[in-house]
Amino acid sequence: MQQHLIQADVRASSGKLVLSMASTPEELREVQRLRYKVFIETMGLTALASDDGLDSDEFDEHCDHLIVRDSNTLKVVGTYRLLSAARAHKLGRVYSENEFDLSRLNNVRNRIVEAGRACIHPDYRGGAVILLLWSGLAEYMRRERCDFLAGCASISLADGGHNAVAVYNALSVKHMAPVEYRVTPHLPFPYTKLEPAQTMQVPPLLKGYMRSGAWICGEPAWDPDFESADLFLLMPLANLDARYARHYGVDGQ
């Protein structure tokens, strides 16, 4: 785990919330406990339950972890996992390759930061936490000299997948990536075989990506462990909308 890539001079706060980078094993465990609470307990994914109450995998030790902490309670209430291009090169892969063939992106791999495991405590979902996380992400990308953010956005299949179909059908019309950035799911979600929901609900994280200029890079993958349809997204920093650049700390040009 890399440490101190966000220094004290770029720490941000909003009221009682403070942004930093996890720098100790205990802070990483705090991150993993929050992810467990949100992904396994709150979402009811009992198949992923563990005795230690931690959501962890082999990527955690190679990634940096943005954290937002409530300075009153000292609890970690938000986190984002970041894999730099250098660390991805050393590993030989990124997390998203568990679900997608990314071979068309080989020529830009050294310019990509992969973000994942975005997680916010249910009591802190008013918007301030995600803005802090995104400001830290923008700073991290500047430090790493990377031009693209990549990652997966999940759509729950709790309704049988009908909302996922509606979301993909609607968003892919306006936000599909240029053909040279397209990826292919290893396990495709069979969206053509399901009727779309009449009322569409776009997950907040995915909505934020779309508003910030991200591309959908192909058809959705099916993640049976997390019971979701996942979209692989690529966001050029140059596409950041000016209204978001104010919050994220980049100029969006």
Results as ranks from 00 to 15, higher is better:
residue 119 C to K: 09
residue 107 N to S: 15
residue 106 N to I: 10
residue 116 G to N: 08
residue 75 K to A: 09
residue 106 N to T: 14
residue 104 R to W: 00
residue 96 S to L: 00
residue 84 S to F: 12
residue 106 N to V: 11
residue 70 D to L: 02
residue 88 A to H: 04
residue 91 L to W: 03
residue 83 L to G: 05
residue 115 A to F: 00
residue 89 H to F: 11
residue 60 D to S: 07
residue 127 G to T: 10
residue 104 R to S: 15
residue 61 E to N: 02
residue 136 G to A: 10
residue 101 D to G: 10
residue 94 V to H: 02
residue 135 S to C: 11
residue 73 T to S: 15
residue 107 N to C: 10
residue 124 Y to V: 01
residue 112 I to F: 04
residue 72 N to V: 03
residue 92 G to F: 05
residue 101 D to I: 12
residue 113 V to A: 10
residue 98 N to C: 13
residue 108 V to T: 10
residue 135 S to T: 13
residue 88 A to I: 07
residue 119 C to T: 15
residue 74 L to V: 09
residue 128 A to T: 03
residue 130 I to F: 01
residue 65 H to I: 05
residue 90 K to W: 00
residue 85 A to R: 09
residue 129 V to L: 12
residue 87 R to S: 13
residue 111 R to V: 01
residue 136 G to W: 04
residue 123 D to M: 05
residue 84 S to M: 06
residue 93 R to V: 01
residue 127 G to H: 11
residue 73 T to E: 14
residue 98 N to F: 01
residue 128 A to H: 11
residue 86 A to M: 05
residue 90 K to L: 10
residue 64 D to P: 00
residue 119 C to L: 07
residue 74 L to I: 02
residue 108 V to M: 06
residue 97 E to H: 09
residue 121 H to P: 13
residue 85 A to G: 00
residue 93 R to K: 15
residue 87 R to L: 02
residue 106 N to C: 11
residue 64 D to N: 07
residue 94 V to A: 02
residue 80 Y to L: 09
residue 99 E to Y: 11
residue 61 E to L: 12
residue 128 A to F: 04
residue 108 V to K: 06
residue 58 E to L: 13
residue 88 A to D: 07
residue 73 T to C: 10
residue 107 N to G: 09
residue 114 E to W: 03
residue 76 V to D: 02
residue 127 G to M: 07
residue 87 R to V: 03
residue 99 E to K: 01
residue 61 E to K: 06
residue 94 V to D: 00
residue 68 V to C: 07
residue 129 V to W: 05
residue 124 Y to R: 03
residue 120 I to V: 15
residue 112 I to A: 02
residue 95 Y to E: 12
residue 105 L to M: 04
